[in-house]
Design a protein around this nucleic acid. Structure first.
Lengths: 107, 107
DNA sequence: TTGATAGGCAAGTAACTGCTTGCCTATCAT
DNA sequence: ATGATAGGCAAGCAGTTACTTGCCTATCAA
């Protein structure tokens, strides 16, 4: 229960998670963090450019990370001038169960 | 042309599924079909308006259904002047496993 | 301190998305 | 055939989104 970066005012609705996952670049960022957790913004940038030929600028990735953090899929942690990003798969757990279990809950 | 709306040229990538799920109205349509499968366009329209106060027009819902069909989340079947829509949960099965199992595959 | 590195903020832009509007086709009942 | 019902097609519009550009702050090494 010592969650880092999870609650920042709103409790990260399910809609935020779906919208965050809707972008291919954001999905690649999650892939990158799944492969190597705890990367900084610059690390993610350069590795994404290397491996996926994704010419995304630093600011673009930064904005994508904001969306992922708001969706509670990424938690960030400051350490000096570095800011490390960690993947949080908890919002993915029962994300699609509402249609598979035939039980709707929220929007 | 006896196909049930599943394959129409492209094989429904994972990105299409995420983008389809990103819209709250489309998620409610899936909720509606999960509760009562095989509804027509007009049925979905009226029931969505009744239960969710969703003032969505017929054309709006029709376009949402197109997106869901392209994502292979909904299959449609013609019968006379009616067109019934069926929920297909198969694309949801291992949708988020790529981050939970630490194994990336496609965009 | 100075310079380099890591990152943040905000305005502007181009493309996309959800929805409307208007008109059209197809099927069925009478 | 005629009208009513079920649905399709396409152009246009407004709000959103992804990205860029430019400048700013903070931390660390020399």
């Amino acid at each position: 229960m010592s969650d880092a970066g999870a609650d920042k005012g709103h409790p990260a609705e399910a809609g935020d998670v779906f919208k965050a996952l809707a972008d291919p670049t954001r999905r690649k960022i999650l892939d990158e963090l799944a492969e190597r957790d705890g990367q900084t913004l610059f690390e993610i940038c350069s590795r994404l450019t290397m491996k996926h030929q994704l010419g995304s600028s630093r600011q673009a990735i930064s904005q994508h990370l904001e969306v992922l953090i708001k969706a509670d899929l990424v938690a960030s942690r400051r350490a000096g001038r570095y800011k490390f990003h960690h993947l949080n798969t908890e919002p993915l757990e029962r994300l699609t169960d509402r249609w598979r279990n035939r039980e709707a809950k929220e929007s």
